[in-house]
Design a protein around this nucleic acid. Structure first.
Lengths: 143, 143
DNA sequence: TATACTGTGTATAAGGATATACACACAGAA
DNA sequence: TTCTGTGTGTATATCCTTATACACAGTATA
């Protein structure tokens, strides 16, 4: 194979109702905006990435295309797709916005199901502990 | 018009990537499982509900049909759609599961964007305060 | 050049959202 | 009772989005 394996920590969940391309976009956008993928990084080819994600190459292509339209990626035919440079200013703004949005959704669900504040407090702590452990484990298994 | 207006606190967001019918299903399921809609309650007609949500009647019909297949609703042609009886046992189990899931998603987003634990703590508290106020306001404006 | 990689465009199938026309149920008037 | 109107859920056809497969075109390197 080509440049032989840059592993991108993105997962997709078939059971989620939102489209596959959207799941990948959200996560990849996060990796770029958080600086975990530096400017100039060569991403996996659409086929290679598709194989990792177990989806079609066209779906990955759409992700690359959308993010290129946002100015986050730059792609050259025959060569590959690269991470573009980003305004440091817009970075943190966007970053926090996403997280706030996610938590608001969670709280909304909790309120709708009549969870008390204490219940949610407990759930949030446990969720953090569980996911934190998962994430740290992921880094260890990186190849 | 018919029975003239039972207001169901369900909202849909066009901008969300997941399907409309799914958004409504999640929220209506929540209302039933949390006991806010008692057994035997006559729901709005598919047309009336569709008008409230500003979507098609067919979309509402799909929601009613799906929830009927789950055993949460019972529908009689020409008469309407009613809330069915539910196992008290399965209720809380399901309820908590949904909230846990939602918070895990939020934390996942935060970790991916390299939020510190303290940042998330703050975001969660603020999200709670904001959404709690919204929800209480909603009840006040109920007609 | 030959070859093996890269991204790109076209065609096809499945799922979601809608409008429109249809069938059933019940209440009230003739 | 019989009829008729207005409510209810139901079925069909159409358009847009999503996901895929397959053939095409540019690029790098031996």
């Amino acid at each position: 194979m080509g440049r032989g394996g840059l592993w991108i920590p993105v997962h997709i969940d078939e059971n989620r109702p939102e489209p596959l391309y959207h799941q990948v976009e959200v996560q990849l956008r996060g990796l770029i905006l958080s600086g975990q993928l530096a400017e100039g990084t060569l991403l996996p080819s659409i086929r290679e990435f598709a194989a990792d994600l177990r989806c079609s190459a066209i779906t990955v292509r759409r992700v690359y295309q959308d993010l290129e339209n946002e100015g986050l990626l730059r792609t050259r035919q025959g060569t590959g797709t690269f991470v573009a440079g980003i305004d440091q200013s817009a970075r943190d703004e966007f970053r926090l916005g996403r997280v706030v949005e996610a938590f608001e959704r969670a709280v909304e669900t909790g309120l709708q199901l009549q969870c008390s504040r204490e219940e949610m407090e407990r759930i949030w702590r446990e969720a953090y502990a569980r996911k934190k452990a998962e994430a740290d484990g992921d880094k260890g298994e990186q190849r």
